[in-house]
Nucleic acid binder design. Structure first.
Lengths: 131, 131
DNA sequence: GCTTGACTTAGAGCACACTCTAAGATGTAA
DNA sequence: TTACATCTTAGAGTGTGCTCTAAGTCAAGC
């Protein structure tokens, strides 16, 4: 069988994505994932495309996008190419948010470095006094 | 009155820090802030030092430190200089977490940039076909 | 003196994002 | 065939971090 057409069980997708079967069904229920095909029986049969989409979702999630916004994005995706401009706008807004978040983290990092250095020196001096 | 010794009401601290009075009381209740002095009556009287501590807390929070860890840090801070080594360890662990978080965000940012470019080109081509 | 508004507390309620339970159906191995 | 694991659903429960409510006290302005 073509590896691209390989069908996967919910367990296999869970293992591949790091999500639990519970969470995969939850994401489908709330519309983050389109209704997965059921082949032969009532059980879900995922494709590699589905896994790709879930991995993209996880990246959106990791950047701090809310479920609400991911639902909107998923809905647009299902509506087809007509919605590309709106999706680009969403991605641009996300890009700006992530960029300013990174800037903020870099600022906080400076303070953390400063505190580590300063406190380390104080500890050193206290050690010297003891000896 | 010396500006450093200026006493502040909960409203003033709320305005200065961006937290609400509710949240300020909550943070005190759970030990993120030491019990604030009550002068003349039962009402809280904050000092500039208190505001400085709260601002530091907000930076810890912004880096994703949990309330539980902030409680631990606050407790150590109140115990004095003996706990400096443990606080340095906490800060080092936070530094590592923030650094790898920033790295991850930069990776995600690349994908977002790529998608924006790719989709923008697709949209452009669709526009050309229409005209 | 009275109203208005800010303060106090303990504790309830909320939004988010899962995470799990219960009860039943179905597939797989011995 | 029997046992057991895994699947299904709807819906309840959980952890985190607030956020608000209720009921009462207090102080300042009209």
């Amino acid at each position: 069988m073509d590896i691209q057409n390989k069908k996967l069980t919910i367990q296999e997708v869970a293992k591949a994505t790091g999500l639990t079967p519970h969470t995969l069904r939850y994401y489908e229920r709330i519309g983050l994932i389109h209704p997965i095909n059921r082949e032969e029986n009532t059980r879900r049969c995922y494709t590699m495309d589905d896994v790709g989409w879930i991995e993209f979702l996880l990246k959106l999630r990791a950047t701090g996008m809310s479920i609400k916004d991911m639902q909107r994005y998923a809905e647009l995706q299902r509506q087809g190419d007509e919605t590309l401009p709106e999706r680009v706008e969403m991605l641009k807004s996300l890009r700006d948010k992530v960029e300013s978040h990174i800037e903020e983290m870099n600022e906080h990092l400076k303070l953390i470095h400063y505190k580590i250095d300063y406190y380390s020196k104080v500890v050193e001096e206290r050690e010297l006094v003891k000896v």
